[in-house]
Design a protein around this nucleic acid. Structure first.
Lengths: 112, 112
DNA sequence: TACTATACCTAATTTACTTAGGTATACTTA
DNA sequence: TAAGTATACCTAAGTAAATTAGGTATAGTA
């Protein structure tokens, strides 16, 4: 099993949550955050990240502010009001899903 | 967020683990087990399940024994030796991935 | 007799990711 | 000074794995 498969389908939730925890983040910073927080056990490719950021922006969940830092452009993302609500909701759903998954993994038939 | 997205990409691992916990299971039983273990919070569609079972069988991780019960055919699946090893390995990877995911979800930048 | 539950299945579509690039600036190292 | 690494943005094409939307058939229940 690919070690990153767990983030499949949860990518939007992860991104929203990271931005919420840190008020604002830029794309490259998010990829580094995932790597560092997971002690290198997870990788978030830029090819997966950027389209998802653009999708979240199109949905009105995040908004951008461009800054020039050290001669390079950074696009900082922060949550909109709608995005803040969505982040809270999605995190709750994900946590419940993790709990359910753990229950499924240890499940034994009662008549077994 | 779709409440079932967490199982995307982990489906093979879940199936192998359920069969391992119960020695042998048939397809329909697996769908009911997921529903019951998750208290109805997760659903595993048969359209997702059966192709995955067939793939695992093609890979030599599970094997079948057909039984007629109450006038209906059941295809019981059990782990092969290879499947037993794979199940143990994949469960470890998945558990580590869950732990990593939880670390990512609570991550705050040190310079924030 | 119709509906629900059990029990197997597939084809076509869609989604979300990976692979495989591209552009550009700043910093480090040979 | 040239090459390589890190930073920082991005997209197009391909693929994997799910969903949608069915199908077949038997047994039990209303």
């Amino acid at each position: 099993m690919d070690k990153d498969k767990i983030i499949k389908g949860s990518l939007s939730t992860i991104i929203l949550q990271l931005i919420q925890n840190n008020n604002q983040m830029y794309g490259y910073e998010i990829t580094k955050a995932v790597k560092e927080a997971s002690k290198g056990k997870m990788g978030l490719s830029e090819a997966a990240l950027y389209p998802t950021l653009h999708k979240l922006e199109d949905e009105g969940l995040i908004e951008t502010e461009t800054k020039i830092v050290n001669g390079r452009t950074r696009k900082y993302y922060s949550l909109t009001k709608k995005g803040n609500t969505a982040s809270i909701d999605q995190l709750a759903v994900l946590k419940e899903a993790i709990a359910s998954l753990q229950n499924v993994l240890k499940y034994k038939l009662s008549n077994g």
